[in-house]
């Protein structure tokens, strides 16, 4: 555990992973997109719109995985003061928000031809929208303090509060949805056949490795800005000390 707490050690591993993740992501996209768009069959119910789900579902999976990852990182940060865990959470949040937005946009683009309207208060779309606001709240809170360390700790607590609430919100929205709407053709609920699973898994793998690769880039940038901040602070301290000595 503590081997990973050291930023240098952590980044050595992360940098070793980077080319593999980036390369694998590229390969999976190059195989997955043609299969998703061309060689996989159209669905008998949804027609060609099923191809949108090969983006919508992986985006939804990323949205959830990234949030659980952020919560785990925040817990590690709060319990063991593990600085890298917090950095992972902080660097992941904007990506999680973008994946959530993609999930919403693709869901809406699927909904317009299937439901005849861009927005339906479908249980999944509604939960996704709430998750999007939770991401925005985390990003806004982490950024709201003069002292970056305070923002880190407040945001970490918020991530944990959020992860306890996510299942409660899901349960509530599902209950509310069945109360108000008869089940119709629902996003992703329709049966998945084997032909659809292959492009789905390929795109999930592509999205996942893509996230890891970009995360490493973002972690490098975050570490550098911490170094810059420290260098600035020590510079100020040095100049103050010399000024006092003169």
């Amino acid at each position: 555990m503590h081997k990973f707490a050291n930023p240098t050690q952590f980044m050595r591993i992360a940098n070793a992973i980077y080319p593999w993740a980036a390369g694998l992501s590229m390969i999976l996209f190059l195989i997955g997109v043609p299969i998703a768009l061309v060689s996989s069959p159209a669905d008998y119910q949804q027609g060609e719109t099923v191809r949108i789900l090969y983006l919508h579902v992986p985006a939804a999976v990323m949205m959830q995985m990234i949030y659980y990852g952020m919560a785990a990182g925040s817990a590690a940060y709060l319990i063991w003061r593990h600085p890298m865990a917090n950095l992972v959470a902080k660097a992941s949040a904007p990506m999680g928000a973008i994946f959530t937005a993609l999930c919403l946009i693709c869901g809406m683009l699927w909904g317009q031809p299937m439901w005849g309207t861009f927005w339906v208060w479908d249980a999944r779309l509604t939960s996704t929208l709430i998750q999007f606001f939770i991401y925005l709240g985390y990003i806004a809170l982490a950024d709201a303090f003069e002292d970056p360390e305070r923002g880190d700790r407040a945001a970490a607590i918020l991530a944990l509060v959020g992860v306890v609430n996510v299942p409660i919100i899901k349960f509530s929205v599902n209950w509310w949805n069945t109360l108000h709407q008869p089940a119709s053709l629902s996003l992703t609920k329709s049966s998945m056949t084997g032909d659809m699973l292959l492009p789905l898994f390929l795109m999930m793998g592509a999205f996942g490795t893509f996230y890891i690769a970009v995360l490493v880039l973002r972690l490098r940038a975050e570490l550098l800005s911490a170094k810059i901040r420290n260098a600035r602070l020590s510079q100020v301290a040095v100049s103050e000390a010399t000024a006092a000595a003169e």
Binding site: I130, A140, L158, G162, W175
Partner: peptide, 15 residues
């Protein structure tokens, strides 16, 4: 900021 953090968490109570 408080509204942004807390209102999503109020949705179950509202429902």
């Amino acid at each position: 900021l408080l509204s942004l953090l807390v209102l999503p968490l109020y949705i179950p109570v509202l429902i």
